[in-house]
Design a protein around this nucleic acid. Sequence first.
DNA 1: CGCATAGTTGACTACGCTCAACCCTGGTGG
DNA 2: CCACCAGGGTTGAGCGTAGTCAACTATGCG
Lengths: 204, 204
Amino acid sequence: MDLLIPDRLPSELRHSIATRSLISGQILFRQGDLAPAFYVVKTGRLKIARYTAEQRMVTLQIARPGESFGESALFSEFYFYTVIAEIDSQVVVYPKQTLLLTLRQHFSLAEDFMTLLVQKNRSLIGQLELRDIRTAHRRVLQYLHSLAEPDDPQKVRFDRPLQEMAIDLGFAPATLSRALMRLEREGIIVRAQNSIQIQDSLVA
Amino acid sequence: MDLLIPDRLPSELRHSIATRSLISGQILFRQGDLAPAFYVVKTGRLKIARYTAEQRMVTLQIARPGESFGESALFSEFYFYTVIAEIDSQVVVYPKQTLLLTLRQHFSLAEDFMTLLVQKNRSLIGQLELRDIRTAHRRVLQYLHSLAEPDDPQKVRFDRPLQEMAIDLGFAPATLSRALMRLEREGIIVRAQNSIQIQDSLVA
DNA sequence: CGCATAGTTGACTACGCTCAACCCTGGTGG
DNA sequence: CCACCAGGGTTGAGCGTAGTCAACTATGCG
């Protein structure tokens, strides 16, 4: 995935990218804003979300270092989601025009880009499946599995408040709390300070 | 969007595509199957769906003539969703290898392809927002808006059984029925044989 | 030591699900 | 031409679970 590694970019693109810093809580752009750039996270953590007509926030992605967002900018006039820094963060800014020209000349980068889009699709589908699980404890368990570290699929690290996760899951904080309690009581998970061990492996 | 119009394709690709016919209820491929092709609907109607670990079906898309699916095939070994013909249908089959080669040589087609991927993304985000609406009548109303005809945003045509739509919405059939009744009783919609008129315009 | 925030817990409400009965329509065969 | 049947749709009753609101606790920071 050379596209995401500045050092490996063709020089014309490498020279047009810049780094931008955001402080915790700062909004990078809002849905409806003009879309001039594609972004890659360098440090920190950002939330990509949409605000619905009913004034609820739907989390689409939590972007961490190495992850990207704003792909749609290249093929659309406006952003259709909002990005906010959850903590102090730095992002690499790829200007739309230069990036498009570069993709045109380097098909392997265009391939990378399409792969990114397909991955996003998959991730969104995963969230849709998640929302399809009605009972809180089951949905939470599935969510934990999706957060598990690749090397140790039983371990989930927490670096975000539970309230935030509740929003991601589409639950009220109280509901998430109760669901976690239940999973713990049933011996399916074990909670520690900033992590959870999953005991079961029922869910694929 | 030349990519979807066989006549406008470069000859090498045009000669490698084929048409395949399916009868109602027939499965084109299942999630997990090897992914050798990208498809465009010529006639009929197909459901793109995923089966969750809990044995529920989550509808991702209803593909109608001119719409495509299987984009992910090009950048992934396997399909991760299932496609089934809801009625007798015909699809145009684009073999993966030839298509990839063609995209490499015709950037405008690659652009079309990326635009398709972005549109899919958007559509999935729309569904996520839909699922975020808890109360049945509000979700249904939003769904109706999303189905409205572009030229007449007050009119929604029905060519599928309500049971199917209930599944798409993530509701039990009885719940959808009650929601429609309520919207009708409140004067927000007017039902006819195979269509619905939406009276309100509260939802953006 | 006090304050602010996150998390937990309880009581109550609301709404979607399930299951079942019933109605209505279109299609089939006697 | 009508009786029957099958499937989709509607309606009712009762249940389960998430939401809401509020009180209480725990934790971290000034």
